[in-house]
Write a protein that binds this DNA or RNA. Structure first.
Length: 228
DNA sequence: TAGGCCATCTGGTCCT
DNA sequence: AGGACCAGATGGCCTA
């Protein structure tokens, strides 16, 4: 990851991500063959506890199974569907001038790269399956960038919740009880409020969030209709 | 139709 | 040398 990408990720806040993911609930599932009529609508964030059950997505071991069409360079469905002229020696592509040996090498490299990207996408699918957003056929799949940003957000949320939990346990270990003694203000935010600073979290306006996180790249706020 | 997202190809660079 | 990784280019599909 280069520096600019890292800065981009660092600049994304919790709420920017919530908005970002909500944006993806407004249109039909839109990925490859999955395109189709879907009922528009926002997908609600599911409670974090739903994602703490220890469930893990199918592992994405590199070197896993691959379809045979990865091996020949031009038999993949996508390649044929695209009708790309890349490497098409019959249409005068870049490989037309190269020897049979060079072409074979190029096809091998292409297949390897394709396989690598498929592994990467499998890993992203695995990530999508364990981060908190509605997984439904009628809900559009998170984009790659949204997946990464939401995952980062989720990790930060979990880390913060864990810290709050530790503080609560430490407090209780001092001989206090929740029922007899009000929880100190410092511990009160344990839970959603700790990671969602806006009052009435679900009611926070886009403008409020955009203003608060003005450092967020504007491209991630394209959905915001009331941006200041 | 423009813009977003994606898959694929390609050449370069780095590592083993 | 071969493989992994990366970024740029290209074109297809979909949505607003």
């Amino acid at each position: 990851m280069n520096v600019s990408e890292e800065n981009l990720l660092k600049s994304i806040s919790n709420d920017a991500l919530l908005d970002l993911t909500q944006r993806y609930g407004q249109s039909a599932f839109g990925f490859g063959a999955g395109h189709g009529a879907g009922s528009p609508g926002r997908f609600p964030l599911t409670p974090a506890t739903d994602f703490l059950s220890g469930q893990t997505a199918k592992s994405n071991e590199s070197g896993g199974e691959h379809t045979s069409d990865d091996e020949d360079g031009f038999d993949s469905l996508e390649s044929r569907k695209r009708g790309s002229s890349f490497g098409d020696d019959k249409s005068g592509g870049p490989l037309a001038k190269k020897s049979k040996e060079q072409r074979s090498l190029r096809l091998s490299i292409n297949a390897r790269e394709r396989r690598r990207m498929h592994d990467l996408n499998d890993a992203l699918d695995g990530l999508r399956s364990v981060i908190p957003y509605a997984h439904s056929p009628s809900v559009r799949k998170l984009s790659k960038i949204a997946t990464l940003l939401l995952a980062k957000n989720y990790i930060l949320m979990q880390a913060q919740a864990l810290e709050e939990m530790r503080r609560l346990v430490a407090y209780l270990n001092q001989g206090q009880t929740i029922t007899s003694t009000p929880i100190p203000t410092a511990l009160a935010p344990f839970g959603q409020a700790a990671v969602y600073p806006f009052s009435g979290s679900a009611l926070a306006t886009c403008a409020e969030k955009c203003t608060t996180y003005s450092g967020t790249p504007s491209s991630l706020f394209k959905h915001c209709n009331d941006k200041p």
